[in-house]
Design a binder for these strands. Structure first.
Lengths: 341, 341
DNA sequence: ATTAATTGCGCACACGTGTGCACGGATTGT
DNA sequence: ACAATCCGTGCACACGTGTGCGCAATTAAT
């Protein structure tokens, strides 16, 4: 079941394969008569250029590798969508792999990408340690880290992300302004870096306002389970005689917490305010609609891809940190009177 | 910035590149001493095999192309996850592209996959017409259609999907048994085939029970908007003085409808029952938790990939139709007394 | 001790494409 | 009319890898 090659076309047109190659590529040194004849024959034979052979010859594959933690995660789904759109628009094919939050698998995927000689790599939510970063640095493939915390000690690496700390600050400002004085953070160690920064921005801002240390509870689930479940379980461990507000690592965890509250009869937002993170599609359709810190998810993916393309084109390119925004909906409200002081 | 090749290794080891190739592949005709020396040098030089050159030589790329309508859709996100998992486990790299519900783009993507000489293709929710199917048939790449309606006039094509008609039947049985006698179907023409089958299974079953034609309203949105929004808008067009039950094309539309009901004070499930389709992750965490027709989403992706692998291995392989199941939660209940007759 | 078998390795080709260089023929300049 | 230019095409190589075949050297068999 051999495919038709330019050699086959050459035989039919009674020319050399060089001429066919030039004709197909529109080289002006080929006469018009010969060119049209070749194009016609190519069409009749159903010729499709072999990108593999071209890649080998050109030492460039026009291929990008994308590794994320979990494709089924609504956040990453949108990011992937943005990456894919820009990628396709620029005639780059996209390899996709999921690491399932396993750093060693993350690196393994990257090695496979390298074998396939991808022109560039985008790695989402990198959890690579020093040793792994060194290994990665050796292969010298342009790499963009997406929502990852990487020290820029390594030259040639680039980054796109959002300011997680600022997101935590936004949540703190919002809830403090509503009068909440006993709060909790619900996070997950599945993404250590961003979880840490959101938690930190939240905590430091509150402390700056004068909140006593004991009035902020932080819970970090170490489970790899579905975030909705994690939220449900973390929410069940909170002492609601004191706590009047929850800030959650992401919307899925917030929605899980919300579900727990409904099931045990805690009124949101009357008794308890909940703030999420990401602003996934469902956030605005939950009951009540979720107040959240919005990330420009699709734009995040698009930006990462555009940055990578710029690097590949040799253009000067700078890392980008996008800023999250507060979206106030109906899951947050002033603290109940009895508890605010 | 040339990469190290077996030729480079050969120079260092003072052997021919053939010997290096054989040594790396573990050919037993190479002496142990030479082999270990070569392996050591390969390691020192940081050699990584060039999969492009291998692909050209072997006329096989160990690559699969996957095209879906929308990666950010929670349903397809899970399907992609299943495909990717099996793919990676079998050392196949995965190309991903989204068609955004555009049939011509769907075909364009497939042509790109063909240029890259993928070993096989999985196309989700195919909307290819006859002409496009003919074009696809000409390139003779093993193809698995996932949740698509394809006539098997084309040999060499395979299919994996769920029985959408049976899903519609399940919904009808459930709602009829609860006493509902005025119902509505909320669908979307973004996926013509499956939408048609679900609607049909639902309608024919109800008619078989003796429901008068006028007691079932069917609404098909032609919008390309987010499904949550579609559900919200479709739900706002229903006459709730009669209708006591909604069957929705998928969970996102159902959740949109649910949000509408909450916003205008329609009690679910007391006044109105809602049944969705897919059983996406959020379905069990909505308020009330959604009664739905569950699809084995990840299994769907896994099955498709396994079928494709079987085809590639030349094994006898048969198309698979998985059966959806009814998951009863809290968005469906007996019809209110006043309306049931 | 001579032949046969085995072992270890290199030569050369193939996969499909792109391109520098040379070369023959046509065209133009003086 | 002869030389200089230009146009169209083919030759040959490169990209990196795998493998059939042959060849020399070593070992085993008679």
């Amino acid at each position: 079941m051999r495919r038709v090659s330019i050699e086959d076309i050459a035989r039919h047109a009674e020319v050399s394969h060089s001429t066919v190659s030039r004709a197909l590529r529109g080289n002006k040194r080929i006469s018009l008569t010969v060119r049209t004849r070749i194009l016609q024959i190519a069409n009749e034979l159903g010729y499709t250029p072999n990108a593999i052979a071209q890649s080998l010859q050109q030492r460039q594959t026009n291929t990008i590798g994308l590794v994320v933690t979990d494709v089924a995660d609504p956040f990453w789904g949108e990011v992937v969508k943005g990456v894919e759109a820009v990628s396709m628009h620029n005639q780059k094919a996209l390899f996709l792999s999921a690491s399932q939050y396993d750093p060693s698998r993350q690196l393994a995927v990257i090695e496979v990408f390298h074998q396939r000689r991808v022109d560039g790599i985008i790695v989402g939510d990198s959890q690579l340690g020093d040793a792994q970063m060194n290994r990665l640095a050796r292969i010298k493939v342009p790499t963009v880290f997406l929502n990852s915390q990487v020290d820029h000690a390594y030259p040639g690496f680039h980054a796109v992300g959002i300011d997680n700390y600022a997101g935590g600050v936004l949540a703190a400002q919002h809830l403090w302004a509503l009068g909440h004085r006993h709060l909790a953070y619900l996070g997950s160690t599945k993404r250590p870096a961003s979880n840490q920064m959101r938690s930190l921005g939240f905590a430091e801002t509150l402390r700056g306002y004068g909140l006593p240390p004991g009035a902020l509870a932080t819970h970090h689930s170490t489970s790899l389970a579905d975030d909705l479940r994690i939220g449900y379980e973390l929410a069940s461990a909170i002492d609601y005689t004191q706590t009047t507000a929850l800030f959650c690592y992401n919307d899925s965890i917030a929605l899980g917490a919300l579900t727990y509250c409904r099931s045990v009869g805690i009124a949101v937002p009357e008794q308890l305010s909940i703030v999420g993170f990401d602003d996934v599609a469902i956030a605005q359709f939950s009951m009540p609609a979720l107040t959240t810190i919005a990330q420009p998810k699709v734009a995040l993916g698009e930006t990462a891809m555009q940055l990578l393309l710029a690097v590949l084109a040799g253009q000067p390119s700078i890392d980008t940190i996008l800023t999250p925004t507060l979206v106030v909906r109906h899951s947050s409200a002033p603290a109940p009177k009895g508890t605010a002081q």
